[in-house]
Design a protein around this nucleic acid. Structure first.
Length: 572
RNA sequence: CGGGACGUGGCGCAGCCUGGUCAGCGCGCCUGCCUUGGGCGCAGGAGGUCCCCGGUUCAAAUCCGGGCGUCCCGACCA
């Protein structure tokens, strides 16, 4: 391909709107342009990278026995009403009406559509299992799109759904997808971690996320330094040494102390000259099942996902100041569990305190010497807090580290949630009607492009792995005014293309420096330079983008040298 | 959705506080010459409703009000 024929509008300076490295570089390399917040144009080079990712995904999905389909982007509201998600999905679901005023949405995901398709076409266990996937643009009206392709509103996703006659078969498929996903991300050259994920109200322990490790990652994960335990921070368990029912009181009954204006954990700790871990904080939540109180030690952070799962609720928000006043008779900052007429859920560490300071449910007052076991009517004690790097690994007891990751894949055992909602049934061998078991498997294709750049870049620009690079080789003639150089460059270009190598010949009338800079920026793995200096020796100069290593290669050997390097990198 | 910032030729920015002397700089772009191994050099040139609407004023990029857009932080820690 000739550089001059492609639209590659590279930028010398960082665009003001970009913060994340991948976002800056994608814009600078002329791979994407923003149309609106979270909505991007893919220019030729960006599209090439996207297609590379797609190719890897397709190959591995097909290898694993999945079949590709293409479902509609626009979906009728009826299906979503049938599954109940029309009500619960919220503002992320982009809704609109067609000319007949029928409610529609732009698909953020396709469980409804695929389940509808399968319920119409599958009647017998003989037609199962089925594993269908598509690669398609999704739209989620994110409350805050950010970091370019990392969290866009419109994005390319591979979503797959499997259908099974038995739970065991669904689990086997889950394992196959687990394996396929590992292959996909390895082939994309990513450093990633597979973590246990929260499976939400659907239940079951079968959910894993594939996280690309990067500072810009929006997700936090806990990873064991010794064993292979890793979990999303939302999911990561806190273990206590022994089941501790709560310490015996050390001293006399609670006592009320005036604490005017002392509200936050820090202020209370400072006021009483104690550490936050001797405090009990009381969080009041509104849920669809009514208000509840959550008790935590002052130095711990609540894990709302754990609370939601324990309560079996989907909606849960912190109560506002007015509501806190109604429920506790005190201003925010003075809520406490003693005598509080709400269901009280205590984190295990909070419940185990011997003596704590807590709000008195009276503005300007706190209680001291509160013993949870004695003084509080606790509804239930559970693991309700977020792990920290100070906690031990729940599997092996070694230390945990907290890492940041970009979620690029998520596999999920759905069970019969959607088959029940949409009545997707089949007849088993005994002629009995049964709900189809399902699994779903997602990959953020466009997000992988950004994630790969987050992991592969230097001060000069992107560094793509061979499998994702827009071109495998950048061919730079030092000067096109030199007849011999030009002739040799064209000849090499033709020879490489004929050999199936993806080569970008920089035929622009630019100074060499410009071409070098752009070639580095684009992250092409191999750069071949020809010029009077190299031709004198009957050679070309080859530079490896990642290693920075430069070698002179004789022209006769160039083709095989490149082929060897490309093959090695793609497979290795 | 809450908080903050920003909006000036294609891109990056200055000017705004202290209204007029203001539409400017760098990059990019066009023409010519020169140059050709890391974003050359010289000369000439094109290109802007200063986000939009309204107001104040003799006068608004600049002050005021409203809107729109974009980015950042947060959206649990009482």
């Amino acid at each position: 391909m000739f550089y001059s024929r492609l639209l590659i509008p590279t930028l010398k300076e960082d665009p003001a709107e970009a913060e994340a490295v991948s976002h800056k570089l994608l814009l600078r390399a002329g791979m994407i342009r923003k149309l609106a917040s979270g909505i991007y144009n893919y220019l030729p080079l960006g599209l090439r990278v996207l297609r590379k990712v797609e190719r890897v995904v397709r190959e591995e999905m097909n290898r694993a026995g999945a079949q590709e389909v293409l479902l509609p982007a626009v979906q009728p509201a009826e299906l979503w009403q049938e599954s109940g998600r029309w009500q619960i999905y919220g503002k992320e679901l982009l809704r609109f009406q067609d000319r007949h005023n029928r409610d529609c949405c732009f698909g953020p995901t396709h469980e409804e559509v695929i389940t509808d398709l399968v319920r119409r076409e599958v009647q017998s266990y003989r037609q199962l299992p089925l594993n269908l996937y598509q690669i398609q643009m999704k739209f989620r009206d994110e409350m805050r799109p950010r970091f370019g392709l990392i969290r866009g509103r419109e994005f390319l996703m591979k979503d797959g759904y499997s259908f099974h006659a038995s739970e065991a078969d669904a689990e086997a498929c889950y394992q196959d997808m687990y394996t396929a996903y590992n292959r996909i991300f390895q082939r994309c050259g990513l450093r990633f971690k597979v973590v246990e994920a929260d499976s939400g109200p659907i239940g079951g322990s079968f959910s894993h996320e594939f996280m690309v490790l990067a500072e810009t990652g929006e997700d936090l994960l806990a990873s064991c330094l010794a064993c292979d335990y890793a979990a999303n921070l939302e999911k990561a368990e806190v273990v206590v040494a022994a089941a501790n029912p709560g310490a015996e009181p050390l001293s006399a009954a609670p006592e009320e102390v005036p604490t005017p204006g002392v509200r936050t954990v820090e202020e209370v700790a400072a006021f009483f000259q104690i550490t936050p871990r001797e405090l009990l904080k009381t969080l009041i939540y509104e849920t669809e099942k009514g208000p509840v109180a959550v008790l935590l030690r002052g130095d711990h952070e609540v894990n709302e996902v754990k609370v939601k799962n324990l309560l079996g609720v989907t909606d849960m928000t912190l109560a506002g100041a007015g509501r806190v006043r109604e429920l506790t008779n005190a201003e925010v900052g003075f809520a406490g569990p003693v005598g509080l007429h709400l269901p009280i859920y205590a984190d295990q560490a909070a419940a185990a305190l011997a003596e704590a300071v807590t709000g008195a449910n009276k503005t300007g007052h706190h209680l001291v010497r509160v013993n949870p076991r004695r003084d509080i009517s606790i509804t239930q004690v559970a693991d309700l807090r977020t792990v920290t790097a100070q906690d031990p690994c729940p599997r092996c007891g070694t230390a945990l580290e907290i890492l940041r990751g970009i979620e690029v894949g998520h596999i999920f055992k759905l069970g019969t949630k959607y088959s029940q909602a949409l009545k997707a049934l089949f007849l088993d061998e005994a002629g009995q009607e049964q709900y189809i078991f399902m699994g779903c498997y997602g990959i953020g294709v466009s997000r992988i492009v950004a994630a790969a750049i987050e992991q592969g870049h230097d001060a000069q620009g992107m560094i793509f792995p061979m499998a994702l690079a827009p071109f495998q080789v950048g061919l730079i003639p030092i000067s096109l005014n030199d007849a011999a150089t030009k002739e040799k460059a064209l000849e090499l270009h033709a020879a490489l293309e004929a050999a199936g190598i993806e080569v970008l010949l920089d035929d622009r009338d630019e100074r060499p420096g410009v071409k070098f800079k752009d070639c580095d920026l684009l992250g092409l793995p191999l750069r071949v330079v020809v010029g009077p200096r190299t031709l004198e020796k009957g050679a070309a100069e080859v530079r490896h983008r990642r290693r920075g290593e430069i070698v002179m290669v004789q022209l006769e050997e160039l083709l095989s040298y490149l082929q060897e390097n490309i093959c090695q990198e793609i497979s290795g």
